[in-house]
Simulated scan of single mutants.
Amino acid sequence: MGDYTIAELQTLVRAPMMTGLSVAMIDMGLVSTAIEAAAMSKQIAGAAAKYPANSIIQAAFSEATLKSGEVKLDKPEVKPEEVKSGAMIEEAIADINAAIALVDGKASAPEVMEYKQFIYDCGVAVAEAAGSGLFGTGTKVSAAEAEALDRFKLVLGL
């Protein structure tokens, strides 16, 4: 867990989680949401292996950190009106900004860029996991999901 407090680690984990969750909630469906949740879990579980030299990702997403149980996230209460109004996207952007502000100066510029890419990739993985059709088939990334991803990309400077 290195140079980060438990609260800071929670901030680092919350940014990609909220990014993925907010994308999943855009086109919520029983089957598609389950498929998207699995895609999000896969991204989080594979983060440390995908970025072995990134101190940010190693601190927040290493097997030791994830299994320690010390980094806990409050489950956000998802209200339909927040999804429709875009408030969830705004909350995810606030979480992204908080996480980036936290690592700025604590990690190298290449590590920060990789972390930003990881956050974005979590949203992409969720958007591409299931389509809008029956049982998650059909068009994979809806127009609303693509719009959210564009906003995240802009905020992340990618």
Score class of each variant (00 low, 15 high):
Met1His: 13
Gly2Arg: 05
Gly2Tyr: 06
Asp3Lys: 12
Asp3Arg: 11
Tyr4Trp: 15
Thr5Ala: 06
Ala7Leu: 06
Leu9Phe: 11
Leu9Asn: 01
Leu9Gly: 11
Thr11Ile: 06
Leu12His: 09
Val13His: 14
Val13Pro: 15
Val13Asn: 10
Arg14Ala: 13
Arg14Leu: 14
Pro16His: 05
Met18Gln: 01
Met18Thr: 04
Met18Arg: 00
Thr19His: 01
Thr19Tyr: 01
Thr19Asp: 01
Thr19Arg: 00
Thr19Asn: 07
Gly20Ala: 12
Ser22Asp: 02
Ser22Ala: 15
Met25Cys: 02
Ile26Val: 15
Ile26His: 09
Asp27Ala: 13
Leu30Met: 13
Leu30Ser: 13
Leu30Tyr: 10
Val31Asn: 09
Ser32Tyr: 01
Ile35Met: 15
Glu36Ser: 09
Ala37Tyr: 08
Ala38Tyr: 02
Ala39Ser: 13
Met40Ala: 04
Lys42Met: 11
Ala49His: 05
Ala49Arg: 02
Tyr51Met: 06
Pro52Phe: 00
Asn54Ala: 09
Ser55Gln: 11
Ser55Ala: 11
Ala59Tyr: 11
Ala59Pro: 10
Glu63Trp: 07
Thr65Tyr: 11
Leu73Glu: 08
Leu73Asn: 04
Lys75Gln: 14
Glu77Tyr: 08
Val78His: 03
Lys79Leu: 14
Glu81Asn: 02
Val83Ile: 12
Val83Met: 05
Lys84Met: 13
Ser85Val: 07
Met88Lys: 04
Met88Asn: 09
Ile89Tyr: 04
Ile89Gln: 05
Glu90His: 01
Ala92Val: 12
Ala92Tyr: 13
Ala92Arg: 08
Ala94Asp: 10
Asp95Ala: 14
Ile96Ser: 10
Ala98Thr: 14
Ala98Pro: 04
Ala98Ser: 09
Ala99Met: 11
Ala99Asn: 04
Ile100Trp: 04
Ala101Pro: 02
Ser108Lys: 09
Ser108Met: 07
Ala109Arg: 02
Val112Ile: 14
Met113Arg: 15
Met113Asn: 15
Lys116Ile: 04
Gln117Val: 00
Gln117Leu: 07
Gln117Lys: 15
Phe118Trp: 12
Ile119His: 01
Ile119Arg: 08
Ile119Leu: 01
Tyr120Gly: 08
Asp121Ser: 14
Cys122Met: 14
Val124Asp: 10
Ala125His: 08
Ala125Gln: 12
Val126Gly: 12
Ala127Tyr: 07
Glu128Arg: 15
Glu128Gly: 11
Ala130Cys: 02
Gly133Val: 04
Leu134Gln: 07
Leu134Ala: 06
Phe135Pro: 07
Gly136Pro: 12
Gly138Val: 10
Gly138His: 08
Thr139Asn: 12
Thr139His: 07
Lys140Ile: 02
Ala143Leu: 03
Ala143Met: 00
Ala144Glu: 07
Glu145Tyr: 03
Glu145Asn: 11
Glu145Asp: 09
Glu147Pro: 08
Asp150Ala: 15
Phe152Gln: 12
Val155Ser: 07
Leu156Lys: 05
